[in-house]
């Protein structure tokens, strides 16, 4: 199997200078390999470090030690030691991240927000627009909303704009932080279908989903993360959905 992401001995701690300088060890000696076409589900109680891991993978948090190898074009990039320009390039071409919240400039219409990742890759305006429209259609965001800024949208609508923006450029690695959290069952199924479709097309995916939405999908692996006296122990379990 071709792996897309390989995490080796990753560790992360936070020092909270504004709160008495306490140290929080969140990850220690963490290993994980994700192959093309795999969907790895992270599980564990709140505070176990699941979101922290996703953010480290995306280069959003800075690791204390270890390596995060990502296949980027024809090269291997270590997200831990890569410089800012390289991290941005990995994000542009290789790695997508669906955050829990949508953060946008208030005035920009939804359709343009969704088009943006394609435009950044140099895709022509019209082609980007059509692709965005198709995706918004697939996620059943009503067309009357496309020209409006998502700041006034409902939670579920915002979440789908967020998803559409992250999926439009079909990056080969996708990180999903609660992608279905604020959705009703119908819309949740739409998103689960989109995730499956992308995975089957060969994307490597790491996801957090407390709501169990992804459990009925062909998850390749579940990784349990436990908070253990401030440090994290992680097991790779074989596919066995409880």
């Amino acid at each position: 199997m071709d792996w897309m992401v390989r995490v080796e001995q990753l560790s992360k701690e936070f020092t909270l200078h504004t709160q008495g300088g306490i140290h929080l060890r969140v990850l220690e000696g963490f290993d994980l390999t994700v192959g093309a076409g795999e969907l790895v589900l992270l599980r564990g109680p709140s505070g176990a470090g699941k979101s922290t891991l996703l953010r480290l993978l995306y280069g959003n948090y800075r690791a204390k030690g270890g390596a995060i190898w990502v296949r980027h074009g024809g090269h291997l990039v270590d997200m831990v030691s890569a410089g800012p320009q390289l991290v941005l390039d990995v994000r542009r071409r290789t790695m997508g991240y669906v955050s829990q919240f949508l953060r946008v400039i208030p005035r920009v219409p939804a359709l343009r927000i969704v088009m943006e990742p394609l435009r950044a890759l140099g895709v022509a305006e019209e082609e980007a627009r059509q692709k965005a429209a198709r995706l918004l259609d697939q996620l059943r965001v009503p067309e009357r909303l496309w020209g409006l800024s998502p700041t006034t949208f409902s939670g579920g609508e915002q979440q789908r704009i967020n998803l559409a923006r992250s999926f439009i450029a079909t990056p080969p690695v996708m990180l999903l932080d609660e992608p279905t959290a604020s959705l009703d069952p119908v819309n949740r199924q739409l998103v689960v279908d989109l995730i499956n479709q992308t995975r089957q097309a060969g994307a490597a995916m790491v996801a957090i989903a407390h709501d169990g939405a992804l459990l009925d999908t062909p998850v390749t692996r579940i990784v349990e993360m436990h908070s253990y006296q401030g440090a994290i122990v992680a097991n790779d379990l074989p596919q066995s959905c409880p």
Binding site: L16, H17, T18, R55, G59, N60, Y61, R62, L88
Partner: peptide, 30 residues
């Protein structure tokens, strides 16, 4: 895209904007 954090005339921290704002390292940035 990227930030420099200044204090008393010196750059005390730099990095991608989201890194600096989401995972600030220096006490002053925090």
């Amino acid at each position: 895209n990227r930030l420099l954090v200044m204090r008393r005339g010196q750059v005390i921290e730099s990095g991608l904007t989201d890194q600096v704002l989401d995972d600030p390292q220096h006490p002053y940035t925090q």
